[in-house]
Design a protein around this nucleic acid. Structure first.
Lengths: 264, 264
DNA sequence: AGTCCACTAGTACGCTGTACAAGGCGTTGT
DNA sequence: ACAACGCCTTGTACAGCGTACTAGTGGACT
């Protein structure tokens, strides 16, 4: 990785110019390829063949760099266009958000929780607020927003959370430990072990990046949107704010793009 | 905090015996009072008036100590008894879990995401699995479990996530930054700013521990349980697996303990 | 009385984030 | 043409981190 050892003179400029974007890219690659634990100011500087203080000159401290990495990560998730039905729109955005997280799980792990606040990370929230505001939720707007965002982001964080440590031995050890749980202490987990094994949030030994919980995520999103839809229906029974989805439960709904007429 | 400076001779036992529980308690108090950043092996050792190596003798490395702190934290949330209705039961357990997190936010922040896996932290999952298994969800059991656990834990994690840093100055700065967002870039957030200000997940400047999102949490739980209930109703319309809650939407449902006859 | 072992003092190594002085180079002003 | 300034980097330094490691004391047991 390290492109060139330090052999330059004192104030000489690097042969390849050190820009803020180059530093962000290097940090992103470092985290992505070698994991979050490998990320440090020194490691990023070494990757660029540069002393650590250089990073402080260009981007600032560690938290700021992580914030920029977050912005770079989040900027790749596109806001769905041309989806008229608000439920399909929310569903698709959630899918894209999670897909981006699974694309770079090491980055997502660091970035979603640390949440160094930066303006760039507000474009997704703004889009969600805009779509929900059309529904006429009134005072519940902020609660609907928090519920959707919190549940989706939170699920992804927990799904991608590291189990114990990246040693292969300890993974087998974790599996053996879970398989030999005492039925007297944990009667329910042991009884339904086959249904839960390596698929339930605390009953697994494989990383969420390697064993994704796709079906559970779809289930969660459907649960939330069904609940929200029911609430809308109850408060205003005969006013369809958008193309109301009739099928309430059928999961694996194909994301067929509903006509044009987006962005009222 | 530090009880006694190092003045003892080489192999002499500490005047107050150093047990595993004492170390866990010291770590818990340290994190709780001075924040997660203040937590280190050396700081815990200093609090006990002892050298760091002593901790490694009694509990092992940092990850293991954090796992024990998690167990101590989680063991205080009691599983509801004598609540017949499964929805009220789930709601109450979620409330207690979150209440425990808000009781020690600094500890919860560290512990929920790092999730050093330990057996002790499986008693809550086991209880949830047991209650959900009664509903006859079939293959959806694991998905219902993941949805509830993921959403609840995830929401709490994001709610308690630190905003930028604990300086008072930067909080005002963050507020000013959010108040002066460009309406051209973020039209929806700025339009509904009054409804979102300091109450929406990415549009706030106060710590979740100081400004809890109670109403949003209740909203989320209702959403999830309503959705799950609708799913049950749809798959088996005329079989009431438990006392079916009739009111689907009315939030701020008082947690009146429904009769006895728990644990079938 | 002798032996062992549980347990702690103390040291050491390599790592971290980040502040700071020092100095070379391109650009600009005169 | 020459001087001065300011950008950008080198290099050093400091305090703190996790965690091995050795040394050695006291009490318990044989």
């Amino acid at each position: 990785m390290s492109t060139s050892r330090q052999g330059r003179k004192r104030g000489v400029r690097a042969e390849v110019p050190i820009t803020q974007e180059a530093i962000i890219d290097a940090a992103f690659r470092l985290i992505d390829e070698r994991g979050g634990d490998a990320f440090s100011m020194r490691a990023v500087a070494a990757d660029l063949g540069v002393f650590p203080a250089t990073l402080y000159w260009h981007v600032g401290d560690r938290a700021r760099l992580l914030g920029l990495v977050e912005a770079s990560w989040a900027s790749a998730v596109q806001i769905p266009e041309e989806i008229a039905d608000w439920r399909e729109w929310c569903h698709e955005l959630a899918r894209r958000y999670r897909a981006r997280a699974h694309q770079h799980p090491n980055v997502a792990r660091l970035v979603i929780v640390e949440r160094a606040r930066n303006i760039a990370s507000l474009v997704l929230p703004d889009a969600v607020v805009g779509r929900l505001a059309e529904l006429g939720l009134g005072d519940d707007l902020v609660h609907a927003y928090n519920s959707l965002v919190g549940a989706v982001q939170g699920f992804v964080v927990l799904e991608l959370a590291l189990i114990p440590d990246p040693e292969a031995a300890s993974m087998l050890e974790a599996e053996a430990e879970l398989r030999s749980l005492d039925p007297a202490s944990f009667p329910n987990i042991t009884r339904h072990f086959d249904a839960l094994a390596d698929r339930a949030l605390s009953v697994r030994w494989t990383d969420g990046a390697k064993a994704p919980l796709d079906a559970s995520f779809e289930f969660l999103i459907d649960l939330l949107l069904d609940g929200l839809d029911a609430r809308l229906r109850a408060s205003a029974p005969n006013k369809t704010p958008a193309k109301s989805a009739k099928t309430p439960a059928k999961k694996t709904a194909p994301a067929k793009k509903a006509a044009k007429t987006a962005s009222a």
